[in-house]
Amino acid sequence: MKIALIGCGNMGRAILSAIITKKVSTPEDISVCEINKDCRELIAKDFAVFTSDNSADVIKRSDIVILAVKPQSLEETMKQISGKFCKGQLVISIIAGKCIVTLQDGLKHNAIVRAMPNTPAQIGCGMTVWTASEAVDGQQMAQTRTILGALGKEIYVSDEDSIDMATAVSGSGPAYVFLFMESLIQAAERLGLPHDKASEMVMQLMIGSIKYVINSDQPLDKLREMVTSPGGTTAAALAVFANGNLTGLVEEAVTAAYNKAKELGG
């Protein structure tokens, strides 16, 4: 695959690394547009790919163009590349909150994939949810799966509203997990555990619990019940969560994220 990236910050660099490491493409067939000179030179050194500060240079060298600029830079970027795409080229956007129609109008191009990766994609453990315009053909759909699959798991959805839902769940979700971990570490420290011990306990707790779920054939509620002895320590803690309406707070938080995603998407 001949692939171009426009914008190569943290997520763009993660995509670049993944498609080379997983042999989705070769450095010779990859082009990167990055306006930051130091970043551009570092990318050329680290990955041996073609680099330029001119987006038109990389578009004409590629079959697939990945838009990875910051949302606030999209309008200016679209002015520079509008109308420069050929029939048969595919654009994959990972720009948060920007809908397909906005991209089609701004780029003067119809074959658009909109994808929502999350932070763990930077280490190949991401969850990317994506959808495509009607102009994207079967081969391009397969190519998209291959590219996004290099970042971890990928799920195709048939409508953009599901992308907004995914943004609220898996896109923003790492921050929810990190907040809970922070809170648990802080609670452990207040009990008297030193920070390094508390952090190690919580890190392994998360790793072990996730692996346990993956390897179990039981639903989450059954697994929770297995840990919770009546009248025991876990039951005491869960009662506090229930009294504070943890489930309701999580639902409220996810709904707020979903509504914000729809607002940003226009």
Rank of each mutant, 00 (worst) to 15 (best):
Arg114Gln: 05
Met127Val: 13
Met181Thr: 09
Val169Met: 11
Gly106Asp: 00
Val113Thr: 01
Lys84Phe: 08
Thr128Glu: 04
Val169Phe: 09
Met127His: 01
Ala96Leu: 03
Ile94Ser: 00
Gln143Leu: 15
Ala96Pro: 03
Gly126Phe: 02
Pro120Ile: 10
Asp159Ala: 10
Ala150Pro: 01
Ala168Ser: 14
Ile163Val: 15
Ala142Met: 15
Glu134Gln: 11
Gln122Ile: 02
Gly152Val: 01
Val177Asp: 02
Ser158Lys: 15
Ala168Trp: 11
Gln89Met: 13
Gly173Ile: 14
Asp161Pro: 06
Ala166Lys: 13
Ile123Pro: 14
Ala132Ile: 05
Glu154Gly: 03
Ile95Cys: 15
Gly149Asp: 01
Leu90Glu: 08
Ser133His: 06
Ala166Trp: 12
Cys99Met: 12
Lys84Asn: 13
Val157Arg: 12
Gly149His: 01
Gly173Cys: 13
Cys99Leu: 13
Gly152Ser: 04
Gln104Gly: 04
Met141Gly: 01
Ala96Glu: 05
Leu107Trp: 11
Glu154Thr: 03
Met116Phe: 03
Arg114Cys: 05
Ile147Asn: 02
Gly83Met: 08
Ile163Arg: 04
Gly124Tyr: 07
Ile95Phe: 00
Ile147Ser: 00
Thr167Phe: 12
Tyr176His: 14
Val101Ser: 10
Phe178Gln: 10
Phe178Gly: 11
Thr119Asn: 05
Ala135Pro: 12
Ser170Asp: 03
Ser172Gly: 13
Phe178Tyr: 15
Thr144Asn: 03
Tyr176Gln: 15
Phe85Ala: 09
Ala166Phe: 13
Ser133Asp: 09
Ala96Trp: 06
Thr146Leu: 14
Ile92Trp: 01
Ile100Ser: 11
Gly97Leu: 07
Ala121Asp: 01
Pro117Asn: 00
Gln89Trp: 13
Tyr176Gly: 14
Ala135Phe: 08
Val91Ile: 15
Ala111Val: 04
Gly173Ala: 12
His109Arg: 07
Ala142Asn: 15
Ile163Asn: 05
Val113Pro: 00
Ile123Asp: 00
Ile123Ala: 03
Glu154Asp: 02
Gly106His: 11
Ala115Gly: 08
Ile147Met: 02
Ala142Asp: 15
Gly138Leu: 09
Asp164Gly: 06
Cys86Gly: 11
Ala135Val: 07
Trp130Glu: 02
Met116Gly: 10
Glu154Tyr: 01
Glu160Trp: 04
Leu90Pro: 06
Glu160Gln: 05
Val169Glu: 07
Val101Ile: 12
Gly126Pro: 03
Thr167His: 10
